[in-house]
């Protein structure tokens, strides 16, 4: 499983990234977590508001922050 956090480096993007890492750690899941900051890669997913969360190539949501509890349910 691969989770990507899309965002150009705003405060909310960092929060989401931290939440994802915490969720993965707490669950002990075997997940690759990556931060995607370059515009062409973000645009490739058709995302227009950051931060966005991509799981295995599918956009889960965009334009908000999810709590680590919410993310855990997707792992």
């Amino acid at each position: 499983m691969k989770i990507e956090v899309l965002g150009t480096g705003c405060a909310n993007c960092k929060t989401l990234y931290e939440n994802v890492k915490r969720a993965v750690e707490e669950k002990g899941a075997d997940v690759e977590v990556a931060k995607v900051e370059d515009i062409p890669s973000i645009m490739k997913y058709g995302v227009m508001s950051t931060p966005a969360l991509v799981i295995d190539g599918t956009v889960k949501f965009s334009g908000r922050v999810a709590s680590s509890a919410e993310i855990k349910e997707w792992l």
Binding site: T8, G9, C10, S49, T50
Partner: peptide, 11 residues
């Protein structure tokens, strides 16, 4: 939010 201005503009 101004942090999304770039992807929004391009989109």
């Amino acid at each position: 939010c101004s942090c999304s201005a770039v992807p929004l503009f391009i989109g």
